[in-house]
């Protein structure tokens, strides 16, 4: 082989960078796209069931969130990062958390609250202490209690009494009233229907427990969310409400009623698992999930609001940095019992 045939590398354009030189093909936008994919089943079922009102809400929430993010980024003179898809996820989750048929302008206010107040003022993706979609939802719940508590049960059928609202009313009615209300209420529900297609009214995303569980399992299988959060959240709610039910079944609803009603599954699989606002470590995730479960149950059983998932997640979001600090493990080989001081 002569010298001329050998081509030597051109060293003038070499890149020098810190190791490692291999990198996973995963990216933030891929993760966000998978979350959207996992939300598609429940979105499809709800649009099929409610029709246009649901589609409208979802569309305007999503579009609103993306628009608000672009607007805020321009105002703050920061790079526009809508390509990562996190605004899309927030918008979709916000839409799924609203009642079908919410007026468009309220959806847009929700998007403003969620992205503007919940995310961009803190510095954009990764910096927000609270789940933006929940900030949007809770903001709307406080701002427009009337609208946010009128639910569609089907096309052109409205109700203000979701199962949890009935339960809350029954609790407030006291021991005497509760017994009657409870038995009447329990006779109305069919868990099988509920699992597939919620006919009792509720947010768009509460339409089908099965679709939510499917999406959640997809995310867990892809290792995008930590399985500890939904598992321990749901387990805590089941145990807590189960104990309450065992102590007095005439006053408290059975655990399966609590698991299927309201936003518990949506919250446990998609809202509490938001990576930015939940603890980093797996131990922390367990603490976080149990906290969420307990607060949810306390609000549902004894609070004045019928539903407590959003508030529970919001409160635990605030505790996340503390949980991180508390559960920071000791490094490999570190002496025992010498963790971080709180």
């Amino acid at each position: 082989m002569s010298e001329n045939e050998i081509r030597m590398p051109d060293t003038s354009r070499l890149i020098v960078s810190s190791s490692p030189h291999f990198h996973t093909t995963d990216s933030v936008s891929k993760i966000m796209l998978w979350v959207i994919a996992a939300l598609l089943p429940v979105t499809a079922v709800s649009v099929w069931h409610y029709g246009l009102p649901a589609l409208e809400v979802i569309f305007f929430c999503t579009a609103g969130c993306v628009a608000v993010e672009v607007l805020c980024a321009r105002l703050m003179r920061r790079p526009i990062e809508i390509n990562d898809g996190s605004a899309l996820v927030t918008g979709l989750l916000l839409g799924l958390n609203l009642p079908p048929g919410t007026p468009i302008w309220i959806c847009l206010v929700g998007a403003l609250l969620a992205i503007g107040l919940g995310k961009m003022v803190f510095g954009g993706i990764g910096c927000n202490p609270f789940n933006p979609a929940i900030v949007g939802r809770v903001g709307l719940l406080i701002a427009f209690p009337q609208t946010m508590n009128t639910w569609m049960t089907g096309p052109d059928a409205y109700t203000t009494a979701t199962p949890l609202k009935m339960l809350s009313d029954a609790h407030l009615a006291g021991q005497e009233g509760a017994t009657n209300a409870m038995s009447e209420m329990l006779s109305q529900v069919s868990y099988g229907d509920w699992l597939l297609l919620n006919q009792h009214g509720g947010s768009i995303g509460e339409i089908s427990a099965l679709a939510l569980i499917l999406g959640g399992i997809l995310l867990i299988a892809l290792n995008i969310i930590r399985w500890q959060i939904p598992f321990f959240y749901i387990l805590t709610v089941a145990v807590f409400t189960g104990l309450a039910w065992l102590s007095d079944s005439s006053l408290y609803a059975p655990p399966q009623y609590h698991l299927l009603s309201g936003g518990l599954l949506l919250g446990a699989f998609f809202m509490a698992t938001d990576m930015v606002t939940s603890p980093v470590s797996r131990t922390g995730a367990i603490v976080f999930a149990i906290g969420c479960g307990i607060i949810t149950c306390v609000i549902r059983l004894w609070g004045s609001y019928p539903e407590g998932v959003s508030f529970a997640i919001l409160i635990m979001n605030a505790l996340t940095p503390l949980i991180d600090r508390m559960t920071a493990g000791k490094p490999f080989g570190a002496p025992k019992k010498k963790g971080l001081k709180l």
Binding site: V109, L117, I142, A143, F144, P145
Partner: peptide, 14 residues
């Protein structure tokens, strides 16, 4: 229509 949120203490903070 009014946004009740702003009438509440939360609104003052915001």
């Amino acid at each position: 229509q009014g946004i009740l949120l702003l009438k509440m203490p939360t609104g003052a903070f915001i």
